[in-house]
Design a protein around this nucleic acid. Sequence first.
DNA 1: ACTGCTGTTCCACGATGCGGAACAGCGCCG
DNA 2: CGGCGCTGTTCCGCATCGTGGAACAGCAGT
Lengths: 283, 283
Amino acid sequence: MRNSAGGFAGTVGRVVSIGGRTIQVLGKARRILDCFSPEQPELTFGQLRRATGLPPSTCLRLLNSLLEFGFLEREGDRWRPGIRLLTWAAAAAEGMDIGRRAGPVLRRLRDATGETAAVWVQRGGVRVSLAIEETHHPVRRLLSVGQVLPLHAGSGGKVLLAYDEALAQRVLSGPLQRYTERTLVDREAWEAELALIRRRGYAVSFEERDREAASISAPVFDAGGRIAGAVGIAGPSQRFQPDRMEAWVRSVLEAAAELSRQLGYRAAAGSEQPAPAAGGGTP
Amino acid sequence: MRNSAGGFAGTVGRVVSIGGRTIQVLGKARRILDCFSPEQPELTFGQLRRATGLPPSTCLRLLNSLLEFGFLEREGDRWRPGIRLLTWAAAAAEGMDIGRRAGPVLRRLRDATGETAAVWVQRGGVRVSLAIEETHHPVRRLLSVGQVLPLHAGSGGKVLLAYDEALAQRVLSGPLQRYTERTLVDREAWEAELALIRRRGYAVSFEERDREAASISAPVFDAGGRIAGAVGIAGPSQRFQPDRMEAWVRSVLEAAAELSRQLGYRAAAGSEQPAPAAGGGTP
DNA sequence: ACTGCTGTTCCACGATGCGGAACAGCGCCG
DNA sequence: CGGCGCTGTTCCGCATCGTGGAACAGCAGT
């Protein structure tokens, strides 16, 4: 449990393969890889052994094998993910329609607003940033590609919930970690918030997850009318002032519409904002 | 063989674990993941089976297991690397000193020159881009993080060879693929080129790998005086004109010196350019 | 209907990875 | 100095786990 959102919790442990068994050693390999995070990118054997709960010999054999095959690297007594993962990750991002298309759209959004622009997708009950274009403002780095964040805090997460009823049900019925005073944790508040997001076609977050950050996000839909991800901007909350919001919201909505269009989504005729049935139905 | 440089060829197949055996299924898993590339980010079962040479049942079991654990994703009959790899890759980049420090230095280099700035490291006989800051020029994307390129073409590769004698020996004694008319393939030309690079402290490439691209790179040294990577700029060759080169070379050398300093390297006293003994000896 | 291709399931076999136990190297503390 | 607790590492016999051949299903093109 090192990622700030608790990892890809939704898929951990459940083995649901249809026909044959799953290869268990791959699960152990993943448990090892999941110990690493941008905050803890290097770990010792002991830390890994304790974090995974594997017997020493098994853990070491696994580590050596992962090392051999480039999943891990080793420097003295510190282990870290191997550089090969960068190459595979590049293919992963490229393999998703929304990831492949994100670059130019995000750059335009970043240049129009001046803020960091990002695309988020949902996986296993959390959201992951698929692409980022950073602001030119000289501030600390807020976001990075591959970052795992919760769905229940921040505009990107809220958008992903607002347009996926089953997901919202699942996520919001569990306990919701409170990150700041503004984090939404109350069930009724959520109902209202998600309805508002669906009505407006975008979400705003003001210090829900990070006490100093704000963001605006809008949904991206695929050819089937289902939500494929969220696109938005984020930055220091003091820059998200009322006088700018209207223009920024428009820019975010344009970026979302453009991405949706590229994914083959046909917006409902006569409507400016994409607003298909919540829950993923076809409009 | 899908990556333009033929993958991490140097480490494929050799099993050199000291004590126990290595877990072979992880090698098969890697063979599968290695089939994907930014150019071919989605593959069918049949393509994977042929590319890996695995028996159908073994291949499918592996694919299902990799799917189960998030290494892969599946959409209909297309398989692709899983988004989880992005998260691991972020930790991988963060885990390397040079990767962790690269961001601000690259941004400065990019802003000083206007061209795309990148950090390269060597792994298994090829080079991999660890970090990129893209130019603001509206041109096609030349480089991306995690990209695998050959060592024997392009300024970044040449720098990595020039300051690692053993590596140069190994790489240059094999066959060298010719990418353009300017690709260096002659043994004697290489001797001269590497000597020149060491004398100057930087390397220049003009359409050696890509008929329309040029680049300038300089070595980054770690605390032990060994080469840790290369930092440089790349762009359309028509922008790399003589009148700009002097200033750009200076910017690249400054970026390299700054990164080396951050890694704990102490430049030889009285020398402007870092120039330790070639081959990785302590200065 | 036949052929060739996809992707999938089944199953008995035995190689392969398992993990307990014992070991080695080090720093700490009494 | 000797003992203790902690690292990381090696060993080895057992049975578990992954293996891959074979057979199947679904489909497209002759």
